[in-house]
């Protein structure tokens, strides 16, 4: 921009965007406030809640005591982190070979992998449910980890592929000229250059797996239920206990909000399969 922007224009823009942004953010802010109120205060009029009531952390304790919150929290962690790293294990070699040893089929293979993502989950709900039942995988963390790994595998491969693609092949050739073996090449040249890309891939996939709410609800009951399914159990009548619902909700979304803010820049690439950069 060659032109100077007047401070007045900047202030106006800030005011408009700030107000609209704040409106979008209100629901999250509101549960953050209600989580620290008593049940009696939480259902009062909004202004009374803001200015006429005290603060307490009781709700967090109650949520844990009544429904073993940390079991579901750890289920969420195990399932989302587990599925991401399992996926990474399978995706790294695949993305590596497609990026550095492309063949005439590479494009088709990539597109086909993406197409598996287009399959609506409800279209295969019945068979997956029956297979899970027969293999005793219903309501297990292992079963859910496998399913989430499979539904996110195309995204992991795609993201890694676009990041690996950006590493110039000449560097690898130079290393090979200097006598590096394939193993050296991967460990000393490729890995350090690929780490930022891998980190954002991991972050995005943990977010996606953490918030996945179709398979987690349909394939789990009391034991393996992650937070998505646990919160769904608040739909009635416990949903009317606003303070408890808020406390449970804020704990469920806080880790992902923080991770999401860190990965904002990489998000677009991952979510559009490189179609928008």
């Amino acid at each position: 921009m060659a032109r100077a922007i007047s401070t007045k224009a900047k202030v106006t823009n800030t005011a408009i965007a700030g107000t609209l942004g704040f409106l979008m953010f209100i629901p999250i802010l509101w549960i953050l406030i209600l989580a620290f109120k008593t049940e009696e205060d939480a259902i009062r009029a909004p202004l009374e809640i803001l200015f006429g009531s005290g603060w307490t952390t009781d709700s967090f304790g109650t949520v844990q005591a009544r429904s073993d919150y940390f079991k579901h929290f750890s289920n969420s962690v195990i399932i989302s982190v587990g599925s991401t790293f399992l996926g990474l294990l399978i995706a790294i070699p695949a993305a590596w070979s497609m990026a550095f040893v492309p063949s005439k089929h590479t494009k088709n293979v990539l597109m086909w992998m993406l197409s598996t993502k287009m399959l609506p989950p409800v279209g295969v709900l019945v068979p997956i449910y029956l297979v899970f039942r027969d293999f005793n995988l219903l309501d297990t963390r292992l079963g859910l980890t496998i399913v989430l790994m499979l539904i996110n595998l195309p995204i992991i491969i795609w993201m890694l592929y676009t990041y690996f693609k950006e590493i110039p092949g000449e560097i690898l050739e130079a290393a090979r000229m200097d006598g590096a073996s394939l193993r050296d090449e991967v460990i000393y040249v490729l890995t350090p250059m690929a780490i930022p890309g891998m980190a954002s891939t991991v972050l995005l996939n943990i977010i996606l797996a953490w918030n996945e709410a179709f398979w987690t609800i349909n394939l789990t009951a009391a034991n393996a239920a992650p937070l998505t399914a646990f919160i769904a159990s608040y739909s009635s009548p416990e949903g009317l206990f606003y303070a408890k619902l808020s406390a449970a909700s804020i704990m469920a979304i806080a880790p992902i909000l923080i991770m999401g803010w860190f990965s904002l820049k990489q998000l677009v690439r991952g979510l559009t399969f490189g179609a928008v950069k």
Binding site: M24, S235, L257
Partner: peptide
């Protein structure tokens, strides 16, 4: 557009995307 506190405002706008579906539905 150019403005102050760009980062903060963007974060507030983007934040709902990270809220899990069951939470946002129940909260609303």
């Amino acid at each position: 557009k150019p403005m102050f506190a760009t980062g903060l405002i963007r974060i507030m706008v983007i934040a709902p995307f990270f809220v899990m579906p069951t939470v946002s539905a129940l909260v609303w």
